[in-house]
Design a protein around this nucleic acid. Sequence first.
DNA 1: TCCATCATATATCGATGCGATATACGCATG
DNA 2: CATGCGTATATCGCATCGATATATGATGGA
Lengths: 180, 180
Amino acid sequence: MDSKTLCLAVLLKGDASGYEIKKALESAPLSHFQDTSFGSIYPALNRLTAHGQAVCREEAQDKRPDKKVYSITQDGRRALVEALLQPPGPDRYRSDFLFVLFLAELLPAGHLAQVVDSRIALYDERIAHMEACDCAQGQAAPDYVHGFGLAIYRAAADYLKRHRDEIIAGAAQESRRVAE
Amino acid sequence: MDSKTLCLAVLLKGDASGYEIKKALESAPLSHFQDTSFGSIYPALNRLTAHGQAVCREEAQDKRPDKKVYSITQDGRRALVEALLQPPGPDRYRSDFLFVLFLAELLPAGHLAQVVDSRIALYDERIAHMEACDCAQGQAAPDYVHGFGLAIYRAAADYLKRHRDEIIAGAAQESRRVAE
DNA sequence: TCCATCATATATCGATGCGATATACGCATG
DNA sequence: CATGCGTATATCGCATCGATATATGATGGA
């Protein structure tokens, strides 16, 4: 989803500065499926302001840079709903890890095992974090986003664990074949 | 993974033009986890050529634009392996669908049901396509990438199907609450 | 105590990437 | 006989990513 819409979604829940929007996007269950950087947020807020979809007021702070606090406008609410009504494009799963796995035969012996094991650890860590996170407040929509994320990570971790040994053995065999 | 590395990976399996590289990236099991456009591939090939990681020869064709066929060089092979040895960053799952689900309460009644059902259909279609695809030639690395993708899509479809009714009922209830 | 690092807060820069578009021709389908 | 699709190249504008600059207070370890 584009940065403007992401910002509007955060502002809908309450006024916020660019910095606070970034934090909000990092903490929500949504953080696993959407992401932005300051390099996207600040220009997006400017565009939003220019188009009347948000307004900005500056709050002076003691010994800190001024805080620019943004609020969503009625026009912004309209734009957000309009964006939500567009048929969402397909999910996109980007994985450099799987690219490495795909070309495993090019790697020195042992390297793949280390990469696979690190990845399993990474998935497990993510899962533990999500299970610990106390996001289930009822039957609201955010809980399902959270549940979806958990289901995906568990499937990924499970698949890798079930095939770990074969993958590593297969790559070792393949490396020998290529070397000949 | 950056476009240059993606191009090198394709060129490793054989010489190819920009157009053929695009097709190769679309057809491999990898296509679900990596993706590029012409707007990335052609500049990447130019950079590759400039840095001596690929060479280009022009092939005249009858009644067609000339074909620029690229080959990987020894330097290119080195660069590819070097890229593969970098610790891969975390997977990134981008989903506009989950963003819509997250903000379900803003949608008109009935819209969410339609979006969820479309998404289930989309996942099922992808799964059917991947199951039909005759990618399993043995125990090679690409098979595991294929298997990983299938596992993820199955988990996604399964989660959505199991929670479909709750999600839709919950959103309807939430909409009423917000409307009050 | 001092130095490093982190958290708060804004913002920009260059490189990269995405999606649409332009050009050009043959072939098939309706 | 026209419309669109497949082959083939390439570029344009805009969005985005990751790093960096600037400034200050708080925290914490050597």
